[in-house]
């Protein structure tokens, strides 16, 4: 399972990086979102992949690692704030420069 999980992380990262390198803002934002998914999963996996363990304190003694979870939880929310910020930055850039190229100007032919 670990190998498959790692491979999927790799695919998500590769997809995200490819989109991140595009010239238009919208694909870049999507690439960023894909990479945040991959990063969140990666951080989460630092607590190892645990099946069927308790997440709250109970009689049953086995728990998942709460620390990466707490980290990832805030990372998800902050990631949203960042995506929103970048999206609006992209919109403002279109409003100011009339192009959605990441450099704020169309490439010279």
């Amino acid at each position: 399972m670990e190998a498959l999980f790692a491979a999927v992380l790799g695919i998500l990262t590769a997809s995200g990086v490819y989109l991140l390198l595009r010239a238009r803002t919208f694909p870049v934002v999507m690439g960023l979102t894909l990479i945040s998914y991959a990063v969140n999963l990666f951080l989460f996996a630092m607590g190892r992949l645990q099946t069927g363990v308790a997440s709250v304190i109970s009689e049953n003694g086995k728990y998942g690692d709460p620390l990466p979870q707490a980290l990832v939880l805030t990372a998800i929310v902050i990631g949203f704030a960042m995506t929103a910020f970048v999206v609006v930055l992209a919109l403002r850039s279109v409003g100011e420069t009339d192009t959605d190229h990441v450099d704020g100007q169309e490439t010279k032919p």
Binding site: A3, F5, G10, V17, Y18, A45, R48, Y63, P66
Partner: peptide, 29 residues
């Protein structure tokens, strides 16, 4: 170029994740 970079990053993340996931660890939790 972007394709190579993307594949490179993907492979690296996959390797890193696999290497970590298959190793024992100690937590402060």
């Amino acid at each position: 170029r972007d394709f190579i970079l993307a594949i490179g990053c993907g492979v690296m993340v996959a390797m890193l994740a696999f290497a970590v996931l298959t190793r024992p660890y100690e937590t402060i939790s």
